[in-house]
Amino acid sequence: MKIEIMNLSKKYGSLYALQNVNLTLGQGRIVGLLGPNGSGKTTLIKLLNGLIQPTQGQILMDGQKPGVYSKSKISYLPDKTYLNSQMTVEQLVDLFGDFYADFNFSKADDLLKRLNIPVQQKLKTLSKGTQEKVQLALVMSREAEAYILDEPIGGVDPVGRDYILQTIISQYNRNATVIISTHLISDVENVLDDVIMIKNGGIFLYDSVENIREREGKSIDEMFKEVMRWY
């Protein structure tokens, strides 16, 4: 999926959460969206998902504004529990499969099995870490054209984190764009193709991990920390 962001701004009252953002994301790239809290990351993600409307500018996904079509092509993992915990894992698989034509049932079964998730149990009976794995499994079971993962490794232990990254790599589809928003940069660096660094509602860097490492001789994590000090 080609994602074009043009002169995008979002204002809340008199405050700009995002100001004049211009970006074009190509297909098949795994992109890191890096920035501190309040930088506009969440706003950008909500705009991409059509949860809020821009104040100015526009987003085009394969030439269309966020809407029913783009939602059918984007698989979104929010950074909170967003599933009805009264439902069983099986029922949730059923729900996803019903609404998303690109949902792959066998992939879902496989992922859930590998993650040792008891599918007949209600979500609320599972530990928080397991719930997050369920959410990730459902999102990654879709053969989507774009994946937007908001802090996918945030509340998980290191073993779980590693597993999640492995899942992201193994489900990688060269036609799909993957956007990973995170502040745990060092954990995901090796998986990223490109990084977008955002602060105070503006993009101040969009480059490939390779270029940055060659140019700066530093890890993205180190570079990010340094640059953040200056802004």
């Binding site: 059509g50 949860l51 939602k71 929010p78 909170k80 529990t81 967003y82 599933l83 609404f99």
Partner: peptide
Amino acid sequence: YQNMFSGEGYLTFTLPVK
């Protein structure tokens, strides 16, 4: 309320429906 405006809203409003 729960399905629209609590955390579940993130699922409800990203379903491919109007």
